[in-house]
Computed example of a mutant assay.
Amino acid sequence: MEKVFIRWTWMRAVLHNGWWLVTSVYLVVDAGLSPAQLVLIGSVQSAFALVCEVPAGVIADTISRKWSLVISQVLMGTAMLATGLFESFPALLATQVLWGISWTFASGSDVALITDELDQPDRINVVLTRSARAQLTGAATGLIVLGGLAWATRRDLTIVIAGAAMMSLALYVALQFTEHNFVPTRTARWAASWTTFRRGVTLVRRSRAILLIFAATFLVNGASDAAGRLTPKQLLDLGLPTEPDPILWFTGLGVIGLIVGALVLRLVSKRINGSHASTDYALAALVGVLAMLLLAFARDPVVGAIAVVLLSGIVTPLTRIISTIWINTRTTADIRATTHSFLAQLEYLGEIICGLTIATVARLTTLPLALTTCALLFATTAVLMRQPTSDEATV
């Protein structure tokens, strides 16, 4: 199951990240969306995902983690495919909302499934770190393959192909994944779902460490998501060459960032599993401050590109894997997907509140000032994560 799970993680990363690379350029160059519209898409997408996240997690904990992933793949592929069929803002907003909803059926379900099926508490953190590295190498492959395909053919065609491939990945999950160590609720599912939800809330409320990582996730994800959506616009404004096709430049930047990320995860894998997690999270947030200030006040695309690599190669992978392991080690099997869904809700909430704030700054002032706002969010996170975190919550 471990190899099957990591292989699936890699394939999903190939399609998702390659698709997003092409889509991020498509939204700016082909659809001509403004900076405010780019961030607004993320905020609205997150609002819908926020509403669906916990119900999806509870369903995974009471009915099936495996079939939650199948549903996720089908909906995600549909949303990805439809993106390449439209250029109007309302239609693109709708496709991204569907993508956000699709992700709620996977967030938490994947970690919960592999944790329970592996059934080796002393090994799961290693597997999750390997999975994170697989995501990075898969993402690099996706950037090269789909970025190259978009350059050789058309961006909209590549987006449609990626979506169709993502839909077909549902068959891999259905045929290859097992679910031997999970017992679904056969009767009174609504009552069981409510009980699962309440147990998850109780766990979170009693654990200062979980509340701390929730707050950090809110800030970091809000800053990272907004920065990621504004990056293509900023680099093009700084003079990133438009010949050859900008997709090639973004592909190269993405691959470099992912390679750096894979190396960083390998170097810090032992520290992540120990008592240095909060320190590493704070350091990653400080790198985020540096990256945002460099990108905001860069005078040429080279400096801007360095900032992008810092964000995608250090900040994003480190904060993501630390928060996943942090939550996974502080929950129990019966509410694992639900608790991870709570974490995902804080991610979406950060995208909504911080994203709307940054979108307003971008609309009323300038793009550099919006990126500076992202730097302030990272700085707040760094201060927050230096607080004591020792507690042992029970359900």
Rank of each mutant, 00 (worst) to 15 (best):
Ala174Ile: 08
Phe182Tyr: 04
Trp190Phe: 12
Trp190Met: 03
Ile161Ser: 11
Asn221Phe: 15
Ser224Asp: 05
Gly163Ile: 06
Val183Lys: 02
Arg199Val: 00
Ile210Gln: 11
Thr187Ser: 10
Thr178Asp: 06
Arg198Met: 08
Trp194Gln: 04
Ala162Asn: 03
Arg154Gln: 13
Ser207Ala: 04
Ala215Cys: 08
Arg208Phe: 10
Thr185Lys: 07
Asp225Cys: 09
Leu175Gln: 15
Phe197Gly: 00
Arg205Lys: 14
Thr202Asp: 08
Arg199Glu: 04
Arg229Thr: 10
Phe177Glu: 00
Arg208Ser: 12
Leu230His: 04
Val201Ile: 13
Arg186Leu: 10
Ile161Gln: 10
Ala162Lys: 03
Thr153Asn: 10
Thr231Pro: 08
Arg198Gly: 03
Gly222Trp: 06
Asn221Lys: 13
Val201Arg: 14
Ala226Gly: 03
Ala226Ser: 13
Ile213Leu: 04
Ala226Trp: 11
Arg229Asn: 12
Leu171Tyr: 15
Ala164Phe: 14
Ile161Met: 13
Leu203Gly: 04
Ala165Leu: 11
Leu157Arg: 14
Ile159Phe: 07
Leu171Met: 13
Ala209Asp: 06
Leu211Ala: 12
Leu211Pro: 06
Arg206Gly: 09
His180Lys: 13
Thr187Ile: 09
Thr196Pro: 06
Arg205Gly: 02
Ser207Cys: 04
Ala191Lys: 07
Arg206Ile: 09
Arg205Ser: 10
His180Gln: 12
Ala223Ser: 00
Val160Met: 15
Leu175Asp: 10
Ile159Thr: 06
Thr187Lys: 05
Pro184His: 00
Met167Lys: 09
Arg189Met: 02
Arg155Gly: 11
Val173Ser: 12
Thr196Lys: 08
Leu211Ser: 12
Arg208Met: 06
Thr196Trp: 03
Trp194Gly: 02
Ser168Trp: 15
Pro184Lys: 00
Leu212Asn: 01
Arg154Tyr: 15
Phe218Leu: 10
Pro184Val: 03
Ala191Gln: 08
Arg154Leu: 12
Ser224Val: 09
His180Gly: 02
Arg229Leu: 08
Leu169Thr: 14
Leu211Thr: 13
Thr158Phe: 03
Leu230Cys: 09
Ala223Glu: 00
Arg206Ala: 11
Ala164Thr: 06
Asp156Gly: 01
Thr202Asn: 14
Asn181Ser: 02
Val204Gly: 05
Ala209Ser: 15
His180Tyr: 12
Asp225Glu: 00
Arg208Tyr: 15
Gly163His: 13
Asn221Arg: 14
Asp225Phe: 15
Phe218Gly: 04
Gln176Arg: 14
Gly200Ile: 02
Leu169Arg: 14
Arg186Cys: 09
Thr196Glu: 06
Ala170Leu: 05
Phe182Gly: 01
Leu212Glu: 00
Arg155Pro: 05
Thr195Lys: 14
Thr217Ile: 03
Thr202Trp: 12
Ala209Met: 07
Thr187Cys: 05
Asp156Leu: 02
Pro184Phe: 02
Leu157Asp: 08
Thr195Trp: 13
Thr153Pro: 05
Asn181Ala: 07
Arg205Cys: 04
Thr217Arg: 01
Arg229His: 15
Val204Tyr: 15
Arg205Leu: 10
Arg198Leu: 08
Gln176Ser: 15
Arg155Gln: 14
Phe218Ala: 07
Val183Cys: 05
Phe197Ser: 00
